[in-house]
Design a protein around this nucleic acid. Structure first.
Length: 462
RNA sequence: UCCGACUUAGCUCAGCGGUAGAGCAAUCGGCUGUUAACCGAUUGGUCGUUGGUUCGAAUCCGACAGUCGGAGCCA
């Protein structure tokens, strides 16, 4: 019994093969007088393989009805192509039709807008561009694991469901099994969450960081890589309600170790994709971002600029550039500021560190100046913030004070504080938005086109 | 959530006060080792929803919804 060979393998073949079996979907068909050209794609690579179907095939009348999107199994000889544009083609001995795609098949042979393709997100992976995007996505995931595993980081699965309602990173989705039309109530009229599934209010995680820190303070270096949820009503090209985040955490590390890791990781990932997804990147450069390879090479070759927040403000003030919001010390950086630094001033990724404590999260380590915290953001051209991280506050008393200042309930953070109470160590980590990394390596402008079935406000179809 | 634009055939768009048009797709036919093939014909739309102005609205005004772009939140 002949086994199926992937098209990618056939196209890389050193020689012709007497008999092969390919299975896939019809991309396009052109009929000639006595035979048909059928291009088949099976998702293994960008390229199709051309099949020659002669009218001597016993089911040629059926084969002539094949439409774009139909599925087939083709048996035949892999031969040198008589036509110009491809090395090999298959002379079919037999074509089995699995399923015809009726005339309302929505994918056309010509270009379709990303906006339209989002409305058929279940079929868009069959297009060249989305097929390429999701092959890259797979490779990028693999490369992330490789990067950390090669460095001895332990992969930790942090929980998706959490009861700490204030991780400080945004609005959260509540989850419940209570009957929303008729919830159990306390005497004071409030909802009685002791009757809920977990016995208390629970939500979807906005970050695995606090859990990750606990494992770093045991296993040394760890990373998480999993789904993350934000219930913010964000309507931008770079926000999704459900996305994947990578969060490494290193014990016995400071903010400089953290910056080194972030830079090494981004450059490693870009290099890996350039080496392993070259054909797909060609497509993105041709149809999505003509400067893509130049951008990626720049990242791999040149390294990142590193400045402090204070220096960043000074650079902008002295630049003579007209900002809508004047850069003055103490403000949170606007998108226009981030883009100016990465795109115009440095023309490459830049890491900004040591932000005023007022504009950053409670767990970030207070610097000796008493004014700033050891936070660092990696800003990249076009996308803005790719990575946000910090050295964590390891001093018990300082951390308790910060939690109180923020107005949070210490009781909810006792488990977190235990890591500082029992053998505290300096440690640091960051969060990388996986889809933003996808945007960086593919040039795709909208985050909705980097994730198979995007979840954004007013959109949960599929 | 705020600001702006947009919503007309399956897709991309034109029409901007007198009851709808193109290209592509699809369907049918022709031609050709073709390759986002080519040529011809055909089919296809209560112009986002809902109020209003008007003799008459796809076209003007309002509300709502959705989409896109920018901003905020951040990954």
């Amino acid at each position: 019994m002949l086994k199926r060979t992937k098209i990618k393998t056939l196209l890389q073949s050193e020689q012709t093969i007497a008999q092969v079996l390919v299975k896939g979907w019809v991309k396009t068909k052109r009929d000639s007088k006595d035979f048909s050209f059928i291009e088949i794609n099976d998702g293994s690579c960008l390229k199709n393989i051309q099949v020659i179907a002669n009218n001597t095939l016993n089911n040629y009348n059926e084969i002539k009805k094949l439409t774009t999107g139909s599925s087939v199994a083709v048996t035949g000889a892999l031969v040198e192509s008589a036509g110009g544009k491809q090395k090999y083609e298959i002379k079919a001995d037999n074509i089995e039709i699995y399923g015809i795609a009726p005339e309302d098949y929505p994918l056309q042979k010509k270009g379709m807008s990303d906006e339209f393709l989002r409305t058929i997100a279940h079929l868009r992976p069959r297009t060249n561009k989305y097929g390429a995007a999701f092959r890259v996505r797979s490779r990028l995931s693999y490369a992330i694991h490789n990067f950390f595993q090669e460095r001895g980081f332990v992969y930790v699965h942090t929980p998706i469901i959490t009861a700490s309602d204030c991780e400080g990173a945004g609005e959260m989705f509540q989850i419940t099994t209570l009957d929303l039309k008729n919830p159990p109530l306390l005497p004071n009229g409030e909802i009685d969450y002791s009757k809920d599934f977990f016995g208390k209010e629970s939500r979807l995680t906005v970050s695995g960081q606090l859990n990750g820190e606990m494992y770093a303070c045991a296993l040394g270096n760890i990373y998480t890589f999993g789904p993350t949820f934000r219930a913010e009503n964000s309507n931008t090209q770079r926000h999704a309600a459900e996305f994947w985040m990578i969060e490494p955490e290193m014990a016995f590390a400071d903010i400089y170790d953290n910056m080194d890791l972030a830079e090494d990781m981004v450059r490693y990932l870009v290099k890996d994709i350039m080496e392993n997804c070259a054909e797909d990147l060609d497509l993105f450069e041709k149809f999505v971002d003509p400067t893509l390879k130049q951008t990626l090479s720049n990242i791999v070759d040149n390294g990142f600029a590193r400045i402090t927040y204070t220096e960043a403000i000074e650079i902008m003030q002295k630049s003579g550039h007209k900002f809508e919001y004047e850069p003055v010390y103490g403000i949170d950086m606007q998108t226009e500021h981030e883009r100016f630094l990465a795109e115009e001033h440095f023309k490459r990724p830049v890491i900004v560190r040591d932000y005023p404590k007022e504009i950053k999260a409670f767990y970030m380590r207070l610097n000796d100046d008493g004014k700033t915290v050891a936070a660092m953001d990696v800003l990249v051209p076009r996308i803005g913030e790719l990575i946000g991280g910090s050295q964590r506050e390891e001093r018990y008393d300082v951390l308790v004070e910060k939690i109180k200042e923020t107005g949070m309930d210490i009781k909810n953070y006792e488990w977190y504080l235990d890591s500082r109470k029992y053998g505290t160590v300096p440690h640091a980590g960051f969060g990388l938005g996986f889809e933003r990394m996808m945007m960086l390596v593919t040039g795709i402008a909208n985050i909705r086109d980097t994730i198979p079935f995007p979840r954004t406000p007013k959109s949960v179809s599929f």
